[in-house]
Nucleic acid binder design. Structure first.
Lengths: 361, 361
DNA sequence: TTGTAAGCGTTATCAA
DNA sequence: TTGATAACGCTTACAA
């Protein structure tokens, strides 16, 4: 069956103008054009400059970043590696980073690990091949070679949310310890005494370890002054809702007359807990007090509203990108750590006797 | 204050090996190395090939995509322009596209419009400058020049979710008409008769227009056979919750004894409706039947569970990327339209007398 | 102040 | 079958 041809390839246009075209058009040398573009205010005869300007405009010329990169080694490209684009946190980072990069005239090259941390090295290699000038990494750093690679390439690196072991790089993250304190203190103040900290499998992910440790130390520190305060931790996996159900039942039993409260370490876990509660037929707040990491658009509308600890996600992304930009501009400081505070948003899920089913914030 | 210097710039490594290095190492010419790499099976003396292979391995050589792009004009880069990375739908597309690209050995360059459709042109220009081989566009196409640009550049384009006017390009999207039918029919079958279709401001966005039109035509078609069926539409804006509240009150009043049902055109609108319901103190299902476009992880946990129309988002992204890959491999067909069906996920919000508050799916 | 020419890392053409 | 050599589009000594 004969099919009509499409035109895309047909109407192939007068290809992009090159610097040579501009030079010819303006009746000058390529070097002059290049100077006009790059060393703006340095050396120009008004007459010539004007001619070049006209030619550039006439041909709608813009220099090829590729050729530029080849020559100068600088590409105006930033490599962003995320562990999982599905993760809202990664997306927030991405968004902040993309914005900052765009403003600084950089473009983002994206590599998604799809949670396969083995590919970290591959990602960095691939990006490096394109001469990216720096990296923003939101990965686990489990792939030992990756860190080494990035460092060896001598390109600046900013780590977001998750530290890499042995890697000297700027690090931007939530103040995990502070945030856990905030949440735990809130639950305790509301009267909850039997606390459970539910995390995704910790597996050496730095942010998870920090939150877990902070919870334990909160319990340790607060126990003396608070009679009956107890804390436990639980690692929840995606496919094992039963285990979580049991952990919750256990906890409530252990609580006896006291109030049971829970801190979930991120939005994914929060959702699992909510699902578990639905299965158990428990009421948020009364049967179980809940504070969850990560404020989401839907938090206010689950049950009596979910009390959350909001991360300044946009800021994190923005700061990460800005850190990188500063390094690219030559800032030479030892690795920095930028820790941002979380913000507690109290809603119905941490009120022992929740009055209404619906209550937005 | 004297600060210790960091090492990143210190330990600058023996820069990437070039093809010349390999040639020297192997004692052959650059051309030979190039042939070894590119025209694999064509012409090689076993001895030479082996030497080159060793040298490549020894120097961990991999060709510079930049230089390659400069020479051949092909960059193994795909440009992805999204209207708004915040939008979960865009993220899904991004994810699918990124995966397919990676598999095909392409890297993604990302440009986020941040909902500023004026910058579409800028995005395409910037990406084109980097010699991207094709575009995946999830934008409104309001910037007239953009479409023209892309076409003029003679690079293949795939549109996702939103059509551009006057642009001959592959198009991948949900079957909006079918999906609306699905949702509306479901509400009607459940007994709802006074229907409201709530959309974001339509503004010529093709997917919004299609859904709106489909709703109207459903009402027109179904009215004769269904006594008392009424349908209206409403455009909801971010900052005007009051208007939505009023629309809902109006609708219920108009319903009188009949049941009032609502279709929200995407997850953002769904959340607005849920918020409005919370303000009004209405119960989902009983006071208002709800079917929302876009199934989300949290849908099962809002009130009695939200009935949704799930889009095959991953598939959409994947197909978009694959379309592009096919074009890049030379497929020369007229523009295709790929429409995927939505899937209805019935939950409590479309059950007139909802029994339990919590009920997961 | 401007032009000439070399070279960034490839690939492609042409001889050998 | 292999090796010079000339581009690709740009920047930058160096020369004029």
């Amino acid at each position: 069956m004969p099919l009509p041809k499409t035109q895309p390839s047909t109407s192939r246009s007068p290809a992009r103008a090159t610097i040579a075209d501009v030079a010819r058009e303006a009746g000058v040398s390529k070097a002059t054009v290049s100077r006009f573009l790059n060393h703006r205010e340095t050396l120009l005869t008004p007459d010539i400059a004007a001619r070049v300007e006209v030619a550039v405009a006439a041909l709608a010329y813009s220099p090829s970043p590729m050729a530029r990169a080849l020559k100068r080694g600088r590409s105006r490209l930033i490599g962003l590696v995320v562990a999982d684009v599905t993760n809202p946190f990664s997306v927030a980072v991405l968004r902040g980073a993309e914005k900052a990069c765009q403003q600084a005239g950089y473009l983002l090259m994206l590599f998604n690990l799809g949670n396969d941390s083995q590919r970290e090295c591959e990602a960095i290699q691939a990006l490096a091949a394109y001469q990216v000038e720096g990296f923003i990494l939101n990965t686990l750093g489990r792939d030992a070679g990756a860190a080494a690679d990035a460092a060896r390439l001598g390109k600046p690196v900013v780590l977001v949310d998750r530290r890499h072991h042995n890697m000297q790089a700027d690090f931007v993250s939530l103040d995990n310890a502070g945030a856990v304190q905030l949440g735990a203190r809130h639950l305790v103040d509301a009267g909850y005494r039997e606390l459970l900290f539910v995390s995704e499998p910790i597996r050496n992910v730095s942010s998870r370890m920090e939150r877990d440790a902070a919870f334990r130390s909160f319990i340790g520190d607060a126990a003396p002054e608070l009679p009956g305060l107890q804390g436990r931790t639980f690692e929840s996996t995606e496919d094992n809702g039963d285990a979580l159900d049991n952990a919750l039942r256990d906890q409530r039993q252990r609580a006896g007359g006291r109030l049971a409260g829970l801190i979930s370490s991120n939005a994914v876990v929060t959702l699992r807990v909510v699902a578990s509660l639905a299965r158990l037929g428990w009421q948020l707040g009364t049967d179980l007090g809940l504070v969850g990491f990560d404020d989401t658009e839907w938090s206010p509308f689950i049950g009596p509203g979910l009390t959350t600890i909001a991360q300044p996600t946009d800021e994190l992304g923005r700061l990460a990108a800005n850190c990188l930009m500063e390094r690219l501009q030559g800032l030479d400081l030892p690795p920095r750590q930028i820790l941002l505070s979380g913000r507690l948003l109290p809603r119905g899920s941490s009120v022992p006797a929740s009055p209404a089913i619906f209550s937005a914030t």
